[in-house]
Amino acid sequence: MKKTDKTTQVWLTLILLTLSTYTLGYYNYSGSLVVLLLLLTAVIKGVLIIREFMELKGVSLLWKVMMYGWLVIICLAIIIAYTMSQ
């Protein structure tokens, strides 16, 4: 039961974060701070999916580095590209 409750909590958090992303888009907010906020939201969502849904909590360090590294490198590259073109 405990695991199921945690899954529901993660699902709800992901839904709320999606709605916050949509809201920022709805009002057409732009600028470096908004880009940072949107990508930070994407990172949090990604970490929740990798850790809780994909069940990579406790697996070898190599796989953690590969998966979280994928997420962080993409978001960093996007932040740099968008900040440079502001």
Binding site: A42, L71, I74, Y82
Partner: peptide, 16 residues
């Protein structure tokens, strides 16, 4: 598939 969309949605639809 879900994880990819988590980046794709803000990148293509939202971030400007």
């Amino acid at each position: 598939v879900d994880l990819v969309w988590i980046i794709l949605f803000p990148l293509i639809y939202i971030i400007r």
